[in-house]
């Protein structure tokens, strides 16, 4: 399958994520949209990795080009997991205090 399809799919997912972050009011849903953005990146990295690898193998069968893209995906997953643990803790902490996860309540700092 040509790489274009993967790029379009990843871009669509990424845009859905960005639009969700900008328009939604529920902290958990915003958080899910951010995860969607990260996963769009994962998909794109894997697709590019395969593309570069395919091109390099055609020239040299033992080539390692493109492996680093897939490695990067694992790093993103690990960091995303770390972020989830911190982020959910923050959301729970807020829920305990205001009994809501709606970010419209976040206006105490605006004078």
């Amino acid at each position: 399958m040509p790489i274009n399809y993967y790029i379009f799919l990843a871009m669509a997912l990424f845009s859905i994520g960005v639009i969700g972050v900008l328009t939604r009011r529920n902290a958990i849903i915003i958080f899910m949209c951010i995860e969607l953005m990260l996963n769009a990146v994962n998909l794109l990295l894997v697709a590019f990795s395969k593309m570069h690898h395919g091109a390099a193998v055609a020239a040299d069968a033992a080539s390692q080009v493109g492996v680093d893209g897939q490695l990067f995906v694992f790093f993103i997953m690990v960091v995303a997991a770390a972020e989830v643990s911190v982020g959910l803790a923050i959301i729970v902490m807020m829920y305990r205090n205001v009994h809501s996860v709606d970010i419209n309540f976040l206006n105490r700092l605006k004078n």
Partner: peptide, 26 residues
């Protein structure tokens, strides 16, 4: 609480953008 949530959401949003940039450069 509010500052932490804002910082967290904005921080991870900008991380998503950073990653997309890196993926395109890759």
């Amino acid at each position: 609480n509010e500052a932490a949530l804002k910082y967290f959401l904005m921080g991870s949003f900008s991380t998503g953008i950073l990653l997309m940039g890196i993926a395109l450069v890759y």
